[in-house]
Structure formats: C-alpha cells, structure tokens
Amino acid sequence: MGNMEQVEELTTLIGDLVRIETENPPGNEKACTEYIASWFEERGIEANVIDEPHPDRPQIGVKIGSGEPTLVLNGHIDVVPAGDRDQWTHDPYAGDEVDGCLYGRGSVDMKTGVAIGMLTVAHLADDLKSGEIPGSLVFHAAIGEETAEPGTKTLLETGYDGDYGVVLEPTRLHTATSEKGLAWYEIVVTGDPSHASRPDQGTNAIQFAKPLLDALDEYDTDVRERSDSLVGQAYSTVTMFEAGTKENVVPEKAKITIDRRFLPDESIEQIDSEIDTLVGTVEEEHGVSISWNRTRTYESAAIAEDSILAEVFRKHSARVADVSPEPWGVNASTDVRNFINDANMEAITWGPGDLAQAHTYDEHVELSSAADGLTALLGAAEEILSETHMTE
C-alpha cells in the first residue's frame, strides 16, 4: 500500500472513531465496539466481543497468529465528556479536518492510538496467519480507562495477554518505561450543626478543617522532596473543598479532596499509612473527628529502561520521526499498570499525539504525527514479532 493511501485510510479511521461519541461517564462505548468489530470483520479478521466486566459496555479482543513472542497493542475507546460545547470552535464529534489536524474529543486521547493499533493488525494479518511473521499479535479496544475501571485488566485476564504490551496513549512517540501513580483521597471533618445566630452551640467543621489543611500543606512540601529520574517529583494537591448547606447554618462537615501523584517506588499501602497518620495526628492534637477514604487508584508502574521492547520502539521512533531515544517516563496514568503489575508483562506507554491536548477544548491530533506513529508501529511490531530469540 502506498504511503498516501495509508495516510488516507488512517485519517478516515480516526475520523470515524471520533464521530462515535463514547463519553465516560456514563460509559457509551458500545456503538464504537460494534464499529470496530465490523471493521475487522470486513477485513476477514475475527474480533471477539467481550461482555465483561459490564455486559452493556462490551470490549474487543483480537488475536492473530499462534507463534511466539506475542505482542499486545492496547487502546481504550472511552473519552472524557466534551463539557461546555460553546467552548469548542469545532463540534467535538464532527471530526473536522483543518490545516493537517483532525479535531474532536478523543482524537488524541486516544482514538488515534486505537486506529494505528487496528491498522497494524490489518496490515500484518496475512503474514501472521501464514507464519511469514513468526509471532502473534493481540489487539485490545478497552472500556472504562478514564474512570479506572478494569477494562484492560479484564481483557488480559480473559486470555488477551502476551509477552510484550504497548499502551498506545499519546507520548509524541517517546517510549515510556515508567509512569506515575495517582490516588484520590476524600477526607471528612465532622462538626455539629447549629443555627448561625447561635454559633457557639455547634461545632463549625470549617474551623476544624483549618489545622487539617495546614497539615496537608506540610505533607505536600515533604512529598515534593521525593523524585524519580524519569517521572519527576511526587505531589499531594488539595483539589476540592466542600462545606456548608445554607448561609445561616454552621456547617457540620467539611470534605477535602486530595490528588496524590506518586512514584514507582512508592506503594499505595505506604501512602494510605501516611494519610492515616496525618489524620490521626490532627484528630489527637485538635480533638476533632476526621475520617478518610481512597476513592480512586491508578498504581504506578515501571520496567527496566533498557528492556528490548523499549529499545526497539526508541529505534523506530528515532528512525521515523527523529524522536530522542533518551529513556523517558510519563506523568499521567495509563492502563500500562495492568500489564506490568497485574499480568506481569513487559510493557511501555507509547503513541502519536501530544498528551497536552488530552481532555482540552478543541482537542486535536496532527495527522502527520499519526502517520509517523503508524509507520513506526508497523516497523517496531514486525521487528519484535520476528525476533523469536526474545522469549528464549
């Protein structure tokens, strides 16, 4: 297939995927799953529809070939809500093409990644089936990534796993061998309600939240001392504060939310313990009742910087798009943790597009970078699947 045809095919596919609204919440992935299944079917490739973990939100697993090694290409099809439509210059679900860019919610995060994964499977299918390429290729179209649901985890558990994994998130074709983790905590300070005309009868939860906020501020300062050569420093940021029900009622509770970004060498158990100690100290020193819980977790994950998988992808990215082959880590959270931590696989986060575009108004992808991504992925996948010595 000529390069122009390849670019055209890729552009059409990204546009089609973007035009199917798959917002999560609530989790509207089904129409996109159906599109992907029929796209593979038209090309004589069996795409299995997986009804777990949610029967009404199916996902796709594809496997071609029977040899070793097995490479898994992973993409999630859910997108964050488009938000206020008036803030968009381009309709978020029109897939407008302007000046070499394709606009729309999910264009970067991560329907371009999904598209290059699908096309790689389609382009290598015949050689994999005939044994010309000795390895096997697996493709995931996963649900629920934006809300930390076990979409990818379920696909890996259902048998769509392998020796190597690539999570096709936008990294501008840099090869990430490690990623930060993310945990959200809700901390609730409890007071006692009363009418504001008799404030001393109640216990004002906002007053009691002050020493807690001070303690959290100190904790953030300590945490920022921790750093990792690839993903930078850790953070603990207060992102929400909710209190009060009415202007003339002393609030009985205040809820503080923190966003904790953590490093590959920090464990979630360790962070839970730090939060628990912090809360316990404030309770003791100020005689106040505080409870906490962790509401969402994306674990951190890392593999060796010099892994064969990473080396091959660095080489092809440098060849195709002049991307620096320096070791790199990603500050966002991706499903790569399910590969590394849950399935015990060697995996990287790698893909076209700029993460800075993710979740923004007028999100868009440069079509030339998408094309570079497809070229590099085809080259890297073919090399890995042909290197039978890798699994020995």
Rank of each mutant, 00 (worst) to 15 (best):
N3P: 06
N3D: 14
N3L: 13
M4P: 00
L10T: 10
L10C: 06
I14Y: 03
I20E: 11
T22H: 06
P26F: 13
N28K: 14
C32A: 12
A37C: 11
F40Q: 03
E42M: 06
E42G: 01
N48L: 13
I50Q: 06
G61H: 02
K63A: 08
S66Q: 15
G67F: 10
V72P: 03
T89W: 04
Y93I: 09
A94Y: 11
G95V: 05
V98I: 15
C101K: 14
G104I: 01
V114W: 03
A115G: 00
I116A: 08
L119W: 09
L119P: 00
A122E: 06
H123D: 15
A125Y: 12
A125L: 05
P134V: 08
P134Y: 11
L137I: 07
A141C: 11
A142F: 06
G151H: 10
K153D: 15
E157H: 13
G159E: 07
D161M: 00
G162L: 11
T171K: 09
A183V: 15
G191L: 06
A196P: 01
D200A: 12
P211T: 10
A215R: 01
V223W: 05
E225L: 12
D228N: 13
G244F: 08
T245R: 09
V249C: 03
R260Y: 14
F262T: 01
L263H: 08
D265P: 00
E274M: 01
V279T: 02
G280W: 01
R296V: 12
Y298C: 00
S300C: 10
S300K: 10
I303C: 01
E305H: 06
D306G: 10
V312N: 07
F313A: 04
H316G: 05
V320T: 15
D322Q: 10
G329A: 11
V330N: 03
E346V: 15
L355K: 07
A356N: 15
Q357A: 07
A358S: 11
Y361V: 02
D362N: 13
L367M: 14
G373D: 05
T375L: 04
L377H: 02
L378F: 08
L378Y: 09
A381Q: 08
S386I: 06
